Simulated scan of single mutants.
Amino acid sequence: MTAFEFDNSEIIDRLYALAIENGGSSEGEPGFRPRYSEDFYAAYVRDPDNNKIAFVGRLASS
């Protein structure tokens, strides 16, 4: 798995949407993952070659 870190949930949401629109499959929709940490926001996809990609950030939950 390759992870890319961002400081903005909108970027993570948009990258997830773009990945799905371009042939990726969902491995976890964008959202907070409190089981890892209260501020951990992530989205997971698989690309058409079956590589897992994570878009993550440490963000303040609202």
Rank of each mutant, 00 (worst) to 15 (best):
R35P: 00
M1K: 01
T2V: 13
R35Y: 14
E5H: 11
A54V: 09
R58Y: 13
Y36L: 05
D47G: 06
A60N: 10
I53N: 03
N50Y: 00
E27L: 12
E38A: 12
P34A: 05
G24F: 12
S25I: 14
Y36Q: 02
M1F: 03
P48A: 07
G24A: 12
A60I: 10
F40K: 07
D13G: 00
I20T: 03
S62N: 08
S37I: 01
D47M: 03
E29H: 06
A3K: 04
S37H: 15
G23A: 04
E29G: 01
F55V: 03
V56K: 01
V56R: 01
I53H: 06
S9N: 11
L59K: 06
S62C: 02
E27D: 14
D39H: 12
R33Y: 11
G31Y: 09
I11Y: 04
G57W: 08
G28E: 02
D39T: 15
A43N: 06
I20L: 15
R58M: 11
A19F: 13
D7K: 14
N22S: 11
I53S: 07
F32I: 09
L18S: 12
D7L: 12
F40H: 15
D47W: 04
F4I: 13
A54W: 01
F6S: 02
D49E: 14
D7M: 10
A3C: 06
G28S: 05
D13C: 07
F6L: 07
A43D: 02
D47V: 07
E27G: 13
N51W: 01
P30K: 08
S61M: 10
A17C: 03
G57V: 09
D47P: 11
G24E: 03
E38I: 06
N22A: 04
R33A: 07
A3F: 10
E21W: 01
F32H: 08
S37D: 15
S62Y: 00
D47S: 06
A17F: 02
D13K: 13
D39P: 00
G28P: 02
P34T: 04
S61V: 07
R46V: 01
D13N: 15
A19I: 05
I53F: 08
R58D: 08
P48R: 03
D49W: 02
N51D: 00
A3T: 08
A3N: 07
D47T: 05
Y36S: 00
D47E: 08
Y36H: 04
S26G: 03
R14M: 13
I53V: 15
V45L: 04
G31T: 09
D39V: 10
L59W: 05
S62V: 08
D13I: 12
D49T: 10
R14K: 15
E5L: 11
E5P: 00
E10D: 15
V45K: 02
F40S: 08
A43W: 10
R35N: 05
E29A: 15
M1H: 02
N51M: 03
N8P: 07
Y41A: 11
Y41E: 09
D39S: 14
N51H: 15
R58C: 04
G31M: 10
N51R: 06
N50W: 00
Y16N: 08
G31R: 13
N51Q: 06
D13M: 07
A42E: 14
R33I: 12
F6R: 04
P30W: 10
I12E: 02
F40R: 09
D13Q: 15
S62E: 12
G31Q: 09
T2S: 10
Y44T: 00
S62K: 13
Y44I: 00
P30A: 10
